[in-house]
Design a protein around this nucleic acid. Structure first.
Length: 315
DNA sequence: TCAGCCGTCACGCTTGAACTCA
DNA sequence: TGAGTTCAAGCGTGACGGCTGA
């Protein structure tokens, strides 16, 4: 169990801007995939890498090239891009937890009522009634097996619940009121504080986000990674500087283990995309903390400086 | 025809809320 | 009431198969 930032410390970037891993250092914290990239099984990629994937895709780099460049499996690249296109978010979903309870006291009481009125009623009939009577919708109707379990375990011993039972806290849409990654909450394309894509149709991203919807983000024609990176280097310099401006406040206000050795306190960046990527790593290293809120904002700023602002805002 | 790309899915894993039990 | 267990989320990887262009 290691935070992303811990393993990320062992992901390095060579002069080609490729992510590589010092095996001897990383072995104890993560695994190395077929491409030589480091990952922690069961844990999401660092936000910095996720941002990089989206950013490279917007630069017109093909997913297969992104995969090789970042040493992330193409399946993962595909998944992240698909999620981004669908939800507008580069952030991983909420890991862990249980499904919202559907057998709320209200539902149990209703099932009990149905059973009392018609002792011979089948579980699937109860399920249909719950739907047709509007007690549940298709998203939170208990399964037949759940209803059977209720009939078996709860009906006989049902106790009266306070009148507020209808406001059970585990009802749908209340189970995940906020994004579980506090660091990212502020940067999510939520509406009303709810995570898009969860518990309902994804909401379109806000204007501050790169829009994934709509026309395919006008992916430019394919170029080689090196070509595009070379062409983008200059723009990237400004972008990274802007990103640093966005994130630098936090970076400078928090205690940096590296003592700011890799980056000047103001987030000054060089035009070297390699170092820019290091900056991503830096962001990620503090991404698990409150500073991560700047990540997506920084990306948005960066895209503006990539000359994609027109595209993204028009999408 | 074939190599490369891409979407999809199974797999093993981590995580955290709900549940169970002493 | 607190600790341990269960369950169902999401994660990235790797493999498979369809599609496409040379």
């Amino acid at each position: 169990m290691f935070p992303d930032s811990l393993c990320q410390q062992y992901a390095q970037v060579n002069q080609l801007g490729e992510v590589f891993v010092n095996d001897s250092q990383c072995q104890q914290y993560g695994e190395v995939n077929q491409l030589g990239g480091v990952f922690v099984n069961g844990r999401p990629l660092p936000n910095a890498v996720r941002m990089r994937i989206v950013e490279l895709a917007q630069l017109g780099i093909r997913p297969c090239d992104i995969s090789r460049q970042l040493r992330v499996s193409h399946g993962c690249v595909s998944k992240i891009l698909a999620r981004y296109h669908e939800t507008g978010s580069i952030l991983p979903g909420a890991i862990g937890g249980s499904k919202p309870r559907v057998t709320t006291p209200k539902v149990v009481a209703y099932i009990k009522d149905l059973k009392q009125k018609d002792p011979g009623i089948f579980a699937w009939e109860i399920r249909d009634r719950l739907l047709s009577d509007g007690v549940c919708d298709k998203f939170n109707v208990p399964s037949v097996s759940s209803i059977s379990r209720i009939l078996r375990n709860k009906i006989g011993s049902l106790v009266h619940h306070p009148s507020g039972a209808a406001h059970h806290p585990h009802l749908y849409n209340s189970i995940y009121p906020t994004y579980p990654y506090p660091s990212a909450a502020g940067s999510m394309p939520h509406q009303n504080g709810k995570l898009t894509g969860m518990g309902g149709p994804p909401s379109p991203p806000g204007p501050h986000m790169m829009s994934p919807r709509g026309p395919p983000p006008c992916w430019p024609s394919s170029h080689s990674v090196t070509d595009i990176l070379a062409n983008a280097a200059a723009a990237h310099h400004h972008a990274a500087a802007a990103a640093a401006a966005a994130a630098g406040l936090r970076a400078t206000s928090t205690t940096c283990p590296s003592g700011g050795q890799h980056h000047s306190p103001g987030g000054q960046m060089t035009g070297d995309p390699t170092q820019n990527y290091n900056y991503y790593m830096y962001l990620q290293s503090y991404g698990s903390g409150p500073g991560a809120v700047h990540n997506t904002a920084a990306l948005a700023v960066m895209n503006g400086h990539h000359g994609l602002a027109g595209q993204t805002t028009a999408l």
